[in-house]
Every structure is written in structure tokens, then in C-alpha cells.
Design a protein around this nucleic acid. Structure first.
Length: 221
DNA sequence: GGACAGATCGCCT
DNA sequence: GGCGATCTGTCCC
């Protein structure tokens, strides 16, 4: 059996609070089946928790409910895809607490790299043909995996009949770095600095590595 | 490597 | 009317 022979995550695996979910998702395989049957696979290497009600960086801060953020209040394992800056998408998975979700920030491409390259269409010569630039950002991974609000928002990842997008288990061991979240500079310090970003130690596909945190990580034995 | 400007538009107030 | 959980190219060190 190769390491890519995996088992699909089931409903019970999503029954987690937001921070547990963000950590649990690291190392899991995101699988996308395109309309033409093409399979894309990538390992989740960076996540962020958005806690909801009390979290001043969250779309659901203060219990805010709009038609747009509705998936954040849906059962754990629901996809929340939103558009930002007029042209990009971000992909989240809702957790157990109503209003809380985990943002996927970076993936390590595993299967279907040629298709991902076609979707991304990288012009920069220094980044072209280098897999670590395909999915090293929340919107880059949506482009590479063909995830947008129209085709993936509100999808149920816990439904075994869902043939568009799902998660698979993987046995790879990982050390996890905890650090502050990205792109929320407007948020007051108390919430801007909270260690709610999680990534796989040393992974080159991570959008922004925290070298200080990595150097301070004590080896786990 | 880092800083900065500009793109671009759906969503919410 | 204004903003944004981003990305890219350019300029600079």
C-alpha cells in the first residue's frame, strides 16, 4: 500500500471544536474531483481558526449573521467559501460551535499538479514549475483546486455521497507550529496576536513561516 | 528577503 | 459608499 492509499474522513471526524479542528486537519488530504473526472489531491499544511462570537477577526463576530456567512453556522464539516478583494476566494470548513470555522491557508500538492499549474497559470519565472508556489496561500489553493463560491460553498464534507470534494486520512506524523493569524491588521491587538494559525513545522508550502517560532520548537520525543 | 501600489467587485451598512 | 481572512509586479536592499 502506498502512502496515498487513504480512507475518507466520516461525520464523526468533524465533530470537533474550532481549534481542535484546525490542528486535526493538518496533514489530512483534500481531494477534489473535477467535472471531467480529474482527481486533484493536496495535503493540508496550514490552517487558521476563526472562533466566531467573541473573535473580533471573524465574519461572525458578535453573533453576526448574514446570508453570506450562513455556512459558518451550519453543521461541522460544511464548506464556507467567500469572495474577497473582488476577485479571490477563501475556503473554510465549519466546526462544532455555531459561527466558528477553519480557514485553509496552504496545501502541499500531491496529485494532479499539471492541472493545478494550468489553473494557476503562474507568470513569474522564478515561481513557475515549482510546486510549492501552487497552493501557498488561501486564494492560491482555491484557484489550483478549482474551488469557488459557486461550486463548493455549503458542500457537506461529511456526506459520503459527495463526489466533488472530500478529505482523506493520512498517517504522516507532524510537528505543529502555533503563531498569529495573517491579513487581519485592522483587528485590535488582543485578537490580532492570538496564536490561532497552525502549520506543519518546516513545510515549504506554508504561506508565511515563522522562523523564530520554528527555532524555539522543542523536539517532541 | 521586504515594502508598496494597484487590481477589482460582491457584500453589507 | 466603502471595505476586504489576497495576489502580483515592481522597486529596493
Amino acid at each position: 500500500m502506498s502512502s496515498l492509499s487513504c480512507t475518507r474522513l466520516l461525520k464523526e471526524h468533524f465533530d470537533k471544536n474550532c481549534i481542535d479542528m484546525a490542528n486535526y486537519l493538518l496533514g489530512k488530504i483534500l481531494v477534489r474531483k473535477l467535472e471531467d473526472g480529474t482527481i486533484l489531491k493536496a495535503r493540508i499544511v496550514e490552517t487558521e481558526s476563526y472562533l466566531g462570537n467573541e473573535d473580533k477577526a471573524s465574519h461572525s463576530y458578535g453573533g453576526r449573521r448574514t446570508p453570506g456567512n450562513q455556512p459558518m453556522y451550519m453543521p461541522a464539516g460544511t464548506c464556507y467559501v467567500y469572495q474577497t478583494y473582488g476577485m479571490y476566494f477563501c475556503f473554510n470548513i465549519s466546526s462544532k460551535e455555531p459561527g466558528a470555522a477553519v480557514l485553509l491557508r496552504a496545501l502541499e500538492p500531491l496529485v494532479g499538479l499539471e492541472t493545478m499549474e494550468k489553473f494557476r497559470d503562474i507568470k513569474n519565472e522564478k515561481q513557475k514549475w515549482k510546486p510549492q508556489y501552487l497552493c501557498n496561500g488561501p486564494s492560491k489553493l482555491c484557484i489550483a483546486m478549482n474551488i469557488n463560491k459557486n461550486n463548493c460553498n455549503k458542500l457537506d464534507l461529511t456526506d459520503p455521497n459527495n463526489q466533488d470534494l472530500w478529505l482523506e486520512n493520512d498517517s504522516e506524523q507532524t510537528s505543529i507550529i502555533k503563531t498569529s493569524r495573517i491579513g487581519i491588521d485592522r483587528v485590535i491587538e488582543e485578537w490580532r496576536l492570538k496564536p490561532l494559525r497552525f502549520y506543519i513545522y518546516g513545510n515549504i508550502n506554508v504561506s508565511k513561516r515563522d522562523k523564530k517560532a520554528e527555532s524555539e520548537l522543542k523536539p517532541v520525543e
